[in-house]
Design a protein around this nucleic acid. Structure first.
Length: 268
DNA sequence: CTCCGGCTGTCTGCCCTAAC
DNA sequence: GTTAGGGCAGACAGCCGGAG
């Protein structure tokens, strides 16, 4: 259930319905459920729009348009706002970031059904931090949250793309240590399960999937929690290097960018 | 001289808290 | 239940100084 029924009404039948329909029909836009089931619309990981129950919607951050004009949203005819906002994002984001986020979004859209092993339910997930305060050294976030439908697991996924992001402060080893630190606490696990249930039911209610996810919610209580990397290789040389360095050490799902196939599978 | 790497400030996006 | 303001992490750009 969306805890916020007024916002739900606005999205499903009220003034925000044109926005919901537009986002549903545009594969480049995604809507994610943040804390307290707050819906936010993204384009390549740039936040285009945040919706509130009563307050005016929050638009694209000033950094994207400060040398031009702020795009204006007409909730009844949102097309032109999203067109302008997308163009501003394209102009703003740099190439490297663009590649990573494009891959992330493709993974999300290619794994949004029950037809394959994984169902991606969220991007850039941060858990509710009050519940694990003082229990961990550093906060962290996870690139993707997915359900492994084959064995009913909640998978926290970290996307690695290109060789530059493998070592150092936010590298492969470092991310795994942070995961271990968090998952060791039962409070983290129960909080994650609750968040996952909330995200699934909200998305289900908004009709963002072409299947009914009610039964998935029930499975989540029994689901194990696990962690894996997604390595998106741009060449076979990169793939070989990654496998040599980390392939044995960490569970990894492999994707080949050139193949343009972003359906996640284990055991490759 | 150029090329790094570290340091710092800025910005975005997330959650938290206090207040209504 | 809802909002406004603040803190934190991550990404990035610009600056500086040391190594080659």
């Amino acid at each position: 259930m969306l805890s916020n029924s007024r916002l739900l009404d606005k999205l499903l039948t009220g003034e925000y319905l044109p926005i919901l329909n537009l986002v549903k029909n545009d594969p480049d836009l995604s809507i994610e459920m943040r804390i307290k089931n707050q819906p936010k619309v993204y384009y390549k990981k740039s936040l285009l729009l945040t919706l509130f129950p009563n307050r005016k919607p929050e638009l694209l951050a000033v950094g994207y348009w400060k040398e031009g004009i702020q795009p204006i949203l007409d909730v009844n005819f949102p097309e032109s706002y999203f067109d302008q906002a997308k163009k501003l994002v394209e102009k703003h984001i740099d190439v490297k970031k663009n590649i990573e986020f494009t891959i992330q979004q493709k993974i999300t859209t290619d794994n949004n059904s029950l037809r394959n092993q994984f169902l991606v339910i969220d991007m850039e997930y941060q858990f509710a931090q009050e519940k694990v305060k003082n229990r961990t050294n550093g906060k962290t976030r996870f690139d993707l949250v997915a359900i492994d439908l084959k064995i009913n697991k909640i998978m926290l996924l970290e996307l690695k793309q290109g060789l530059g992001s493998l070592s150092g402060n936010a590298g492969v080893d470092d991310h795994f240590l942070r995961y271990q630190e968090h998952v060791a606490h039962p409070i983290f696990q129960s909080a994650l399960r609750e968040d996952v249930k909330g995200i699934i039911s909200s998305k289900n209610q908004l009709g963002l999937w072409d299947f009914n996810a009610s039964s998935l919610v029930l499975q989540v209580d029994q689901a194990e929690i696990d962690y894996a990397y997604v390595f998106a290789a741009h060449s076979s040389a990169e793939l070989i290097l990654y496998k040599q360095q980390y392939g044995e050490k960490y569970t990894t799902l492999y994707l080949e960018v050139q193949a343009n196939n972003y359906i996640l599978k284990d055991g490759i």
